[in-house]
Structures are given as C-alpha cells and as structure tokens.
Design a protein around this nucleic acid. Structure first.
Length: 514
RNA sequence: GGCUCGGUAGCUCAGCUGGUUAGAGCGUGGGAUUCAUAACCCCAAGGUCGGGAGUUCAAGUCUCCCCCGAGCCA
C-alpha cells in the first residue's frame, strides 16, 4: 500500500521563497514519518513551467523560456537538496514524458463529452492566467492581486465542462475529511453552491505551452497541464506513460498539500477533471496557511521578504524546521518573529533537549566508566520515566498523520522537560557526593539517557539532522528505516560506551535582522 | 456588497457537545541548585475572554447587532 504525498508544483517565476519552503518542509516531515512507520512513500514535488507569464518573464530577461525554466528549476532542486528534503520524485512539466500524459488525459475527457469549444471574451490577467469578471465596458481595469492592467481578449478556447460535475463535486465536498483543515471547507462549498461554470483549458497565441491534440494553434492552459504533473510524477518510475498504470504506482494520492490560495483548483477543478477521465480522486487536500513576518505581509514593495536561503545559511535546517513546525499550527496562518524564533530554538532545542543530553551523558561518563550505566531489566522496566516516554510516543504517532506538528513537538518536549525535572528531583550529583548510592544513580541516569534516546528518535521526522546528532551522541546507529523497533522503552544498552559530549545544538545569537 | 475564518494574559496561542477560583509556552521578576550549552528546577505577577443586548439556574463557550483584522467571491 503506497502512501502518496504531494507538494504543489511550484511556478518557476522566481527562486523558492519562504512559503514554498514551508510547504515542502512540512511535507517532508510527514513523508519521513510515514516511512518510519513502515509505509512505502512516494513524496512528489516539482515545478510548473508553462504559461504566458513565464514566456514574458523570459522575454524580459532576453532569454528563451526553457533557459529561464532551467535556471529557476535548478534553484529549486538546489534548495530542496540543501534543506535535505526527502522527495522521491521531482517532476517538471516541461519533461518530455509530460506531454503524452496530458494528451492522453485530454482525450479521455474529450471522449467523455466534457470538452467543448467556445468563445471567450473579457479582461484577462496574465499574472493570474485568468479571465476576470470585470464588465466589458470597463476602461483600463487592473487586477486587484497583481496591480497590473488587464488585457482584453477575444478568442476561441476549448472549455472543460465543469458544469457537468455540479452534484458530484458537491457530494465530494460533503465528505468531512476531503478538505483540511475543516475551517476552509465552507468557503469552497459556497463557491460551488454558486454554480460551477465551465472553464477554458486552452489558449491561442500562447506558444509556451503544450499543444492540444487535434486543435491547431491551441496550447493547454497552465493549470490544466500543471495539475496533471502529479500523475506524470507517479508514472516517472521508468515505465510507460499510460494512465492505466496509475493505480499500481501510487494513485490516488493520500494527500495534496497546498497553500490555501490554490485550494479551489485542487478541491474543485482537479477532482472534476479526474472524474471526467475516469480516474480515482485524491483522498485529501490540505490547504495550509500563509506566513507573515513580524505581523506584516511579506512583499517586495515593503522590502521585508525573508529569504529562506539566508535563513538556512545563517541558522541551519534544524532551527528553521523546528520553529516552523513547532510554533505554527499547520493549517492556520503564521507569523515569523525573529525574537521568538531565536527564543524557541534556544529554549527547546539547545537548552531543554540539548542540555539534557549533555548533562546526563557527562554524568554517566564520569561515574560509569565513560559508558551508559549498567542496570538490570527489572529496574529499567519499572523506571519512573517510562510512562512519560510512552505517552510521548503515542502522542507523536497520533499527531503526525494529520500534520499536527505542533502537538507532536510539544509531546517530545514534554518528555525532555520531565526528564530534566526528574534529574533535579533525584539529584544524582548529591547522591554521588554522599557515596554508596551508585546503583540508584545508575538507574536514574539510565532512565534519562533512555528518554533522550527516544527523544532523538521521535525528532527524526521533524528535525532529521538534530535527531542524528543526538543518536550519535548516544552512540546509537540511526540508520534504521523503521522506528517501530526503536520506539520501545529499554532499547538503550547497559554499559554502552559514550563519546565525549559535544553540544548537539548551538544556541542562536542573532544580532542582526535577517 | 455577499460569504468564510479570526479577535482570550506584554507576545504566540489552547479552551470539545455552555457548569467549580479562565490555561500553556515565550517574555518579565524572585528563589533554589551545580551534573550541564550563563544551563536545569521551583515560585510569582499579569486577563472586565473585541463592544453591546439577549437566552439560561449558569456563557469565553448559544442567539442577534456592532467594531477591528485576514481571506474568498463579486
């Protein structure tokens, strides 16, 4: 049973910004979790490269569209590589494999009687690649999103008969778990209730697009072509491009993770297209929120854009991943606040977790021959921290599948906090001073080290690098592909050598504003 | 203009189907401790739950009106 997960296919207008990084990191955490749980995962990401906007952006730079695409796409690949994203597929809509898939899909829709031609006249925004509803007699209307003048169009287009799917789409949206988070459902339902209108899926005079078979001069509308990239990605396993193969390679997707702005395309247009082509529907569409910065929308005009590359180079993946996943309720809008970012990373990662490991490992080495203490299984099994550890494990496993990263992170932190508290209560350093209580101290430290080992494993999907450093500090192999066998109390070996402790997480000291 | 989602401690937010003195984390102040990354632990101050009216024995939690913010559609 394959677990298929997708990010949006990002539009290659510019290099990745913080928003696309956020989405991708979140998907990465989920993908890693599902793999550790034993699922065969296909994690898809990629880029959407067609459309008039790309054509014009390239022209403005005096380069060909494909050169522009190659350049921007390379920046995505580089970024995901640096962020250590564990995607299985990276699809490009300019890939030669994509064209036959789009044409096959289109033919199915055409044969199903869901394609018609029609005249489309009206004001068009190239930025949105959409016709607007401004009245025909409007003089110099502008797009409210892009603040750019609309262009008058009068052309023959092919239309997808979305109107044929009114009832079916309504029924789909009535399923309580199709759109997540639930708070976004009504907006889409109301949109659909207003009556679905056919939408055009081809353009004339846009050369930078895939040709529509049997319709000279038409290229596919970017959205039609882009959504199909998900299918191309799945078929990109060395086999043939054949829609019949889809269910063997991971379709339907378990989850499309997207920004809330493109929820309509994924929850309405896309399912209808799939229905027309006789293909199964994705199980869930998750529309997450947007990030602001210090309470303000990020934008070039305000000049407050936070570049993920700067963030990465200055602070590292762990810090940023942790902050984004732990502090922002995935689904809701979130605000990036630098001071809070620094505070949380230092408190949670460096102090609570890092220092816990550091202090305990240091004690254990000092008093138990540079190793973990030797305890018998009875003492280990009945350890005071065992319950806390098992609670944390259960919570993480419950929270992660629904992308409740915040809950998972809190559960892990809770275990570390309890272990720190336990140490302070037991005060092994005092016992050692008094003498004669080595056996008791051994049990105390074993339980804390074991908790740290579990924290290390539980952090793996969220902050994989830090996880590895924690486990290696405990002299544990971290290369297991499954964590089922690891997430069991008592896994830490008695009398196991411990390396000289090194801080696993540096405190962030940011003097400057990033 | 219609619709959707928010408005709870300085900050970010939890508060399910209405029910004891409204919670957490961060920040701030104080204390304790020394194993540790000036760390960890404990304690404290701090809120008329956007405003108003209503339903109820009882409302942050339900109804209506208004104000503010974000977004979707016009």
């Amino acid at each position: 049973m394959i677990y298929t997960l997708t990010t949006p296919l990002y539009y290659v207008n510019d290099k990745p910004h913080l928003g696309s990084t956020y989405t991708t990191v979140a998907c990465d955490a989920l993908a890693r979790f599902q793999r550790l749980e034993g699922h065969e995962v296909v994690f898809v990401t990629g880029v959407d490269e067609h459309g008039q906007k790309i054509q014009r952006t390239a022209a403005a730079q005096g380069i060909s569209p494909i050169d522009h695409c190659n350049r921007v796409t390379a920046s995505y690949e580089k970024a995901w590589n640096e962020w250590d994203i564990s995607h299985d597929r990276f699809v490009r809509t300019t890939s030669p494999r994509h064209l036959p898939l789009v044409q096959q899909f289109f033919q199915r829709c055409e044969e199903a009687g869901d394609i018609r031609s029609g005249r489309q006249t009206g004001w068009y925004c190239v930025g949105c690649e959409e016709f607007k509803d401004d009245p025909a007699e409007a003089i110099n209307p502008t797009c409210s999103i892009h603040q750019k003048p609309l262009e008058w169009r009068d052309e023959e287009n092919l239309f997808f008969c979305l109107s044929h799917f009114q009832e079916k789409i309504e029924a789909l949206l009535n399923q309580s778990d199709f759109i997540a988070p639930a708070s976004r459902r009504k907006e889409i339902q109301n949109f659909v209730a207003g009556g679905l209108r056919d939408f055009s899926i081809s353009r004339v005079n846009v050369e930078w697009g895939l040709p529509v078979p049997g319709h000279q001069g038409h290229t596919f509308y970017v959205w039609f072509d882009a959504l199909l990239g998900y299918l191309t990605a799945l078929l990109d396993d060395g086999g043939s491009i054949d829609l019949e193969r889809l269910n063997a390679v991971g379709w339907p997707a378990n989850q499309h993770v997207i920004g809330k702005d493109i929820l309509r395309f994924h929850a309405v247009y896309w399912p209808a297209m799939l229905m027309s082509a006789g293909l199964p529907l994705p199980r869930k569409v998750f529309g997450h929120g947007f990030l602001t910065r210090e309470g303000q929308k990020m934008g070039k005009s305000i000049g407050n854009v936070l570049d993920p590359e700067v963030l990465l180079n200055r602070c590292g993946t762990d810090a940023v991943r942790w902050y984004l996943l732990r502090d922002i309720q995935f689904g809701d809008d979130g605000d990036f606040q630098q001071q809070r970012f620094v505070d949380l990373v230092n408190n949670d990662l460096a102090n609570t977790i890092g220092n816990l490991l550091n202090r305990t490992s240091s004690m254990s080495r000092k008093w138990f021959n540079e190793s973990t203490p030797i305890v018998d299984s009875e003492d280990s099994d009945g350890h005071a921290l065992r319950q806390a550890a098992e609670t944390a494990i259960t919570s993480v496993r419950e929270a992660m599948p629904s992308m409740a990263f915040q809950k998972a992170a809190e559960a892990i932190l809770q275990l570390a906090i309890q272990a720190n508290g336990y140490l302070n209560d037991q005060a092994p350093w005092s016992k050692m001073k008094k003498g004669g209580q080595d056996a008791e101290v051994a049990v105390d430290l074993y339980g804390v080290l074991e908790s740290a080992r579990l924290v290390g494993w539980l952090l793996k999907p969220l902050v994989p690098d830090l996880s590895e450093r924690i486990l290696s500090q405990l002299n544990q192999p971290s290369n297991a592909t499954l964590w089922t066998g690891e997430l069991v109390w008592g896994g830490l070996e008695s009398g196991h050598p411990l390396p000289q402790p090194q801080p696993v997480m540096q405190r962030l000291e940011l003097e400057e504003t990033l």
